[in-house]
């Protein structure tokens, strides 16, 4: 398994765990407590910040463990490019959804979470695209 693939697997797992926790903590009790007017800023920013820290630490750790036995080449760059393209498309859809919510007077809570949702969905699609391309070929 290449460095790129290992790194993508770890990031995907971290994303599912961190954002999964965030989603259950934030949306879990909505049915009983009702939708708040704004998002819990500290939790939201903290979650995104935590994900960034995990990404950096995981990337460095995998690079040390695999000792960069292979550096990236043209195939890796092509896989990255295809992942970025697909993830970027989904992220743009998320942005349009967020914009629509803002223009139609949606609550700050849902605007913030539409933006976060677009970001997360884009990253998930990017990671899954990379893993599929690594395994099945480009």
């Amino acid at each position: 398994m290449s460095f790129q693939e290992k790194s993508t697997w770890v990031l995907l797992a971290a994303m599912l765990a961190v954002y999964g926790w965030y989603a259950s903590a934030t949306f879990g009790g909505l049915a009983e407590s009702g939708v708040p007017e704004t998002a819990d800023n500290m939790r939201l920013i903290g979650t995104v910040g935590l994900m960034i820290v995990i990404s950096i630490v995981a990337h460095i750790a995998i690079a040390i463990v695999t000792r960069s036995e292979d550096e990236s080449d043209e195939r890796d760059r092509l896989i990255d490019l295809r992942g970025d393209q697909r993830g970027g498309f989904i992220m743009a859809l998320g942005l349009l959804g967020t914009l629509t919510l803002a223009l139609t007077g949606g609550s700050l809570f849902w605007i913030a979470h539409a933006a976060l949702g677009g970001l997360v969905a884009g990253e998930l699609v990017k990671s899954i695209s990379k893993l599929i391309d690594c395994r099945r070929g480009v």
């Binding site: 290449s2 693939e5 292979d70 550096e71 990236s72 080449d73 043209e74 195939r75 890796d76 690594c134 070929g137």
Partner: peptide, 8 residues
């Protein structure tokens, strides 16, 4: 290139 690329 990487070994993975040769395999592919």
């Amino acid at each position: 290139v990487t070994r993975q690329t040769i395999i592919a």
